[in-house]
Design a protein around this nucleic acid. Structure first.
Lengths: 229, 229
DNA sequence: CCGCATTTGTTCGTATGTATC
DNA sequence: GGATACATACGAACAAATGCG
């Protein structure tokens, strides 16, 4: 087995490896990564080389370093960081509309390709929503609701669509969270959830699309109310 | 007027400025940027500082440096570069589906918000398409066709959506271009163009959406044929 | 408050490789 | 091939921030 020669610089190689460690979840957001000395040995490079790789990732928004404290993972992917940076220049409504575009398409694709496993998982998510709603556990409810939508998008089978959707969702919820400190009371839309499930089960694209549209309207109103405060 | 202290490093400041110069179109893709000596004076920083800023941008995919030849702009924005990198791991079909999701939403929004100016510009684009088609000027035709779709998306008024759509389009066409060296003969869909224009003029969202769906089907078939070769 | 260990930030110097003319 | 300039990688020394006892 002949291996192609390494024409990439050491810095590039190290940066790429760290990037992968983060994107594959080895190091997750908020984690402190090992100190320079340790990484120097692991990657077998000099301190300067390692530091330059880290600086590149800091500039990309993936890491954050602080003197004396250490280096912390800030974002789970370069794309996520770049999107976050771009979205800062947009309004919440614009962001919501993009998320809607992705979810609409995903729901229609899900209606086409859904498997039995997908349907079962959707049912579980609805159960969780209901359970959390009955117990007035807001945080749990929001998480379950996000999971439901995420599951729909995952059923589309398009990994690029899934990634973009999840990034947009993450950014949106961070936005909302920052804006109002978690005490948002979104209405429970069990009927809507069940309608969407039914549409996907029946493989009815149009119906699925209509659901997403209704959901979007609801969300838009909520968000606009929040924004006014 | 008191100005907040600069707590960003010089490198960050320079990198940010260069980033802006590129994103605002001052320097466009393919351009050779001024030599280091010149930039050192412009930004009033040392060579090392400037070089480090450039290396950060190289890692982000915005610039490309080669010894002796100089530094060249490689991408029009960080987001574009990050997307390009991510899309490499996806199939062309997946990419097309995401672009479709964005265009579908945009077309519906365009139908709602279009101004007279938008309509006029769309008509001009169709004229250009027709003209190029009659003259068998393939390159010009493709450009005019892209312009038409871009104009539709721009009429949506959502700048985030516009940016993402343009990046996806750019990536897709670079993909196709690489794959088959420009001698692709896409069919001229004047009827479809006119139908979409009419739908937008009448502010008929559903009709606009149906058009995009048909266009997507057509494109999908073409792309799948190409991919088989 | 001090002193210390840990950890990142900064700036030198040096050796070696590599592209261009 | 030789000369020159630039890129890459390493090492070392010191500065500065943080946290702990």
């Amino acid at each position: 087995m002949i291996q192609k020669a390494n024409r990439k610089s050491l810095v590039e190689q190290v940066a790429e490896q760290i990037e992968q460690l983060i994107e594959q979840g080895e190091w997750t957001v908020g984690d402190k990564i090992p100190p320079e000395m340790e990484l120097m040995e692991e990657f077998d490079v000099s301190r300067n080389t390692l530091r330059e790789a880290i600086r590149a990732l800091v500039h990309a928004g993936l890491l954050n370093t602080r003197q004396g404290k250490g280096t912390v993972v800030q974002s789970s992917s370069v794309l996520g960081a770049a999107l976050k940076h771009r979205v800062k220049k947009s309004t919440m409504l614009e962001t919501l509309e993009v998320r809607f575009a992705l979810e609409d398409q995903a729901a229609q694709m899900a209606a086409e390709h859904r498997t039995e496993a997908d349907l079962a998982q959707l049912k579980t998510c609805i159960q969780h929503c209901k359970h959390a709603s009955e117990n007035d556990d807001l945080e749990q409810f929001i998480q379950s609701d996000i999971d439901f939508h995420k599951t729909v998008v995952q059923a589309s089978g398009n990994q690029l669509l899934i990634d973009l959707y999840e990034h947009m969702t993450e950014i949106l919820y961070a936005f909302i969270h920052d804006l109002m400190g978690m005490d948002t009371s979104l209405p429970f839309e069990e009927e809507l959830h069940l309608e969407l499930l039914e549409a996907i089960q029946k493989q009815d694209k149009q119906q699925a699309s209509i659901y997403i549209e209704n959901y979007m309207k609801l969300l838009k109103e909520n968000v606009m109310n929040i924004a006014e405060e």
